[in-house]
Amino acid sequence: MLYWLILRPAPVRGRTFLNLPRKQAAALTRALRGLPSRHFAGEWRLQRHLDAVTALYRRREGALAALQLGHHLTAFLLACLEAAHRRVDRPAVNPLRPVLAHIERHLGDPLPVPDLAERAGLSVSRFQALFRVATGLPPGEYVLRRRIERAGELLVCTDRSITAIAFSLGFASSQYFATAFRRYTGRSPREHRREKSAGG
């Protein structure tokens, strides 16, 4: 996924950026304006915080929700700072490009790490280290998350059964698929399909 983020902290009398203490708000805005790179690979926690922000904003359930919203926004921006600074020292990841493309084309097939390392022309240990630097995740978890994301798309865009989607993406059973899907999204495949179909 690709995100564009535009920050315009509008001054409000008596309030600071994200209602942080004045010194912390000033430090955060300075750090954001001084990012070493405005284009960087994100991490899964960024999406988690964005999802939480979206859900809380829609509910608007009073002071507690506002506090949670501020927490997730602050955590999201701090994670952006970390990711942007890491990119400066990040080694070249060209060997992984064909591997990532291969993963996208074969999410329904077995994708053992040794085979992926061989495709990249690297030892398993070097491949795992480089993969984690490039994506923020070990290879196995990256593949699982991509399968879950693809499943989420198929649940909304097709009328295929949950079991058929699970098997098409390499899950051994619909029960394991449902467990993994809930762990990463916070809802069951059936709930995801129903909420998205209803415009949620």
Rank of each mutant, 00 (worst) to 15 (best):
A84I: 01
Y184H: 15
Q175F: 05
R132M: 08
R182I: 00
L122T: 03
D115R: 12
P139Q: 06
R193A: 12
I103W: 04
R182S: 15
L144M: 09
P110L: 12
L73R: 07
R146Y: 01
S125C: 01
H72L: 07
E195K: 14
L144K: 07
H106E: 10
A164M: 09
H71Y: 14
L116E: 01
L169P: 07
C80V: 11
A178N: 13
V93G: 14
G186A: 11
L169V: 10
E82Q: 12
T74D: 03
V88R: 09
L96Q: 02
P112T: 11
R87T: 08
D109Y: 12
S125F: 07
P138H: 06
H102T: 09
R87L: 01
E118S: 11
V133Q: 13
A180F: 08
H102C: 12
L130Q: 03
L169M: 12
L111M: 12
A84D: 01
Q128V: 11
L154Y: 03
V93E: 14
A180M: 15
F167S: 11
Y176I: 13
A79P: 02
L78N: 02
Y176H: 15
L73K: 07
S197F: 05
V113Y: 01
T179K: 14
T74A: 07
T135E: 03
F171Q: 02
G152P: 03
S173D: 11
R190N: 08
L78A: 10
S197Q: 14
R132V: 03
L144H: 01
L111F: 04
V124S: 06
V143W: 01
L130T: 05
R187P: 00
S161Q: 09
G121S: 09
D159W: 09
R90E: 15
H72T: 10
S173Y: 04
R193H: 04
L100N: 04
F167V: 11
T163R: 13
I165H: 00
Y184C: 12
I103S: 13
L77Q: 05
G136A: 07
R146F: 03
T158H: 09
H102G: 09
R145L: 13
L144W: 00
R86E: 06
V156P: 00
R145D: 02
P114S: 08
R147E: 02
G70I: 13
R193W: 00
P91C: 08
E82I: 08
A120K: 00
R182T: 12
P110Y: 04
H192M: 10
R187L: 13
L100W: 13
A134E: 08
Y142M: 05
D115Q: 12
F181S: 07
E195V: 14
